[in-house]
């Protein structure tokens, strides 16, 4: 769009390929390390020494229940994802487009909440969970995290850009303000909702500190916590850890790869575009 001629096209490709090399290098190195025996760590070794043993350990050793960890992770991520795709846009829309008593205060609540890292209040949260008997349950892993102030803030910045005429037009067609949001604005915000989905997914899937604190029995380990408990007898086995990293990262990569295509559609394909 911005660049059109051939010279700039070559420039774009050069830049993008160089960046891609830098950005994929650490992951490729992780991938490499996950395939070698521990004695070759920190060196380069040929294909003949590569092995699947590190991966096999996860799936064959009866000490690790990777499938259970995966199940826990999927359930946790799924619930949080859905919560975030409903609660965040609602609050964000109210802050961006509706005029109601206390709106300014709620906006500042969102901003302030965003600023405080959650692990600073993790100890009181833990104690309150224990009082409710929630520890080591999906409730503990999900309910406090069904919203994210940061995404409310982000969505608000996007909804501000939605033209008021669009909402008024929807109301002319018989929708209420509530209906206008659910039926018009929400479906039209697909790109930004997908962004929120991707970011929430990645953040939840990878989280360690919170799940390892609030659910620390092996039955409720999520993938990252479980993989972290996989250590060798007396030391950390780097290739095994790296295999774990690859196993954890691949689902997010797949999720992203599938959903980033939606950007191409975006609003321009929604039919409402003038």
């Amino acid at each position: 769009m911005i660049f059109t001629n051939k010279v700039s096209k070559i420039g774009i490709y050069t830049a993008i390929v160089l960046l891609a090399l830098v950005f994929s290098a650490p992951f490729l190195y992780t991938l490499y390390t996950s395939f070698i025996p521990i004695k070759y760590v920190n060196t380069f070794t040929g294909l003949e020494n590569w092995t699947f043993d590190n991966y096999k350990t996860f799936f064959t050793s009866d000490a690790y229940s990777v499938s259970k960890w995966l199940f826990n992770t999927v359930v946790m991520t799924g619930i949080i994802l859905i919560g975030n795709l409903i609660i965040n846009p609602m609050a964000a829309y109210a802050l961006a487009k509706l005029d109601f008593f206390g709106k300014k205060l709620i906006f500042w609540i969102v901003v302030i909440t965003m600023m405080i890292p959650y692990h600073m209040i993790l100890i009181p949260v833990y104690v309150n969970m224990a009082k409710l008997g929630w520890l080591n349950s999906f409730a503990a892993l999900t309910i406090p995290f069904l919203y994210q102030a940061i995404y409310i803030f982000m969505l608000r910045q996007f909804f501000i850009g939605v033209p008021n005429e669009l909402i008024e037009a929807a109301r002319m067609d018989g929708l209420t303000k509530m209906g206008a949001f659910w039926r018009i604005v929400y479906p039209l915000s697909k790109p930004v909702l997908i962004t929120v989905a991707i970011l929430t997914f990645a953040g939840t899937w990878n989280s360690y500190l919170i799940p390892s604190t609030l659910a620390n029995t092996p039955e409720k380990y999520v993938l990252v916590v479980g993989l972290n408990s996989v250590k060798d007898m007396f030391f950390e086995n780097t290739p095994l850890v790296m295999a774990g990293v690859v196993l954890t990262t691949l689902p997010i990569l797949a999720f992203f790869f599938v959903f980033q295509k939606q950007y191409m559609e975006g609003i321009s394909n929604s039919g409402l575009k003038g």
């Binding site: 100890i123 833990y126 104690v127 969970m129 224990a130 520890l135 390892s212 604190t213 620390n216 408990s229």
Partner: peptide, 17 residues
Amino acid sequence: YPSSEQFWDTLPAEIAA
């Protein structure tokens, strides 16, 4: 516990709870 740091860091909360 997944790790010793994990244990020591949550122990105060576990005791309190």
